[in-house]
């Protein structure tokens, strides 16, 4: 397997605070990689740097070996990276299917076209994508009236429209009901398996993470403290300390002694 995404020594400081501090990892093709960590660990900062919303203060991001650090989000998107947002961003004045069509129109580089009716373009393909995420029956609803969970699914369909090689999902299940969360992550896992997409996601719900991720990375106070398989992370004393012993008091020298043997739970 070859690495789709390589991150080398990525750093970002806000004043004196190192939000992301020398983070390095790579993501293989077809892998579903979770990035977890307590609130304020630097997950979203990390994500925003990968997608170009935020400029890193140091380090490199490579997509299939090509350096993409410093590119604008739209340029990174063109290189085959799709993303969903922690707080959904959809076009509230359009219908559900038009949201997907917009992405397809942009993918086919026709956003400056003035001749055709936009609502007729790529409609079949957009409906197929909506079908993938189980939203086909809501295709012609007004986007502004959708439930939050549906917006999350819509965003996934939008992100899949340009057949990305890499999918970045920032808390894809935040704000969803427990059953919906499992369903959405199952859906994502299916897409990764069936379409060979690589996916990096952040998540607070440990059930979701441990059930679906192929590999897990743990971020704490900007630093990557663990990177391994589900079982490795489950049994990693440092991770247990961070999640259960309280990140504020974390000190590796003290060891994990005395922490209760609870393995999973909501952070």
């Amino acid at each position: 397997m070859s690495a789709v995404l390589t991150v080398e020594h990525l750093s970002r400081a806000f004043g004196a605070i190192k939000a992301v501090d020398d983070v390095s990892f790579s993501l293989e093709q077809g892998e579903l990689l979770a990035l977890i960590g307590p609130n304020g660990a630097g997950k979203s900062t990390c994500f925003n740097m990968l997608m170009g919303q935020l400029k890193p203060t140091g380090g490199l991001v490579r997509l299939n070996g090509e350096k993409i650090t410093g590119l604008a989000p739209r340029q990174i998107w063109r290189k085959g990276v799709g993303r969903t947002f922690q707080i959904t961003a959809t076009y509230s004045s359009m219908t559900v299917v038009e949201n997907v069509q917009m992405s397809l129109i942009s993918h086919h580089r026709r956003i400056y076209s003035m001749l055709p009716y936009a609502h007729r373009l790529y409609r079949a393909r957009a409906l197929a994508l909506l079908d993938t995420v189980g939203m086909a029956d809501q295709a012609d609803r007004h986007c502004a009236v959708l439930a939050y969970g549906d917006l999350k699914r819509l965003e996934l369909a939008v992100a899949l429209a340009h057949e990305p090689k890499l999918l970045l999902m920032d808390e894809p299940t935040a704000g969803m009901a427990p059953r919906e969360r499992i369903a959405l992550m199952q859906l994502t896992a299916d897409i990764v398996r069936d379409q060979g997409v690589s996916c990096l996601f952040t998540e607070h719900d440990m059930d979701v993470v441990f059930a679906h991720a192929h590999r897990i990375m743990v971020l704490n106070r900007g630093q990557l403290i663990a990177n391994g398989t589900v079982d490795e992370i489950r049994n990693n004393p440092q991770v247990q300390e961070v999640y259960l012993g309280g990140g504020m008091l974390f000190n590796p020298a003290d060891g994990p002694a005395g922490t209760p043997e609870r393995e999973t739970g909501h952070a």
């Binding site: 997608m51 919303q53 604008a72 989000p73 739209r74 998107w77 063109r78 993303r83 947002f85 961003a89 959809t90 076009y91 509230s92 004045s93 359009m94 038009e98 069509q101 917009m102 992405s103 129109i105 942009s106 993918h107 956003i111 400056y112 936009a118 939008v158 429209a161 340009h162």
Partner: peptide, 18 residues
């Protein structure tokens, strides 16, 4: 549509190549 997309959510529009 692209113009409306930029108005509705510049963040999403930029993230889809607009």
């Amino acid at each position: 549509y692209a113009l409306r997309a930029a108005r509705d959510s510049a963040r999403q529009a930029e993230a889809m190549g607009i």
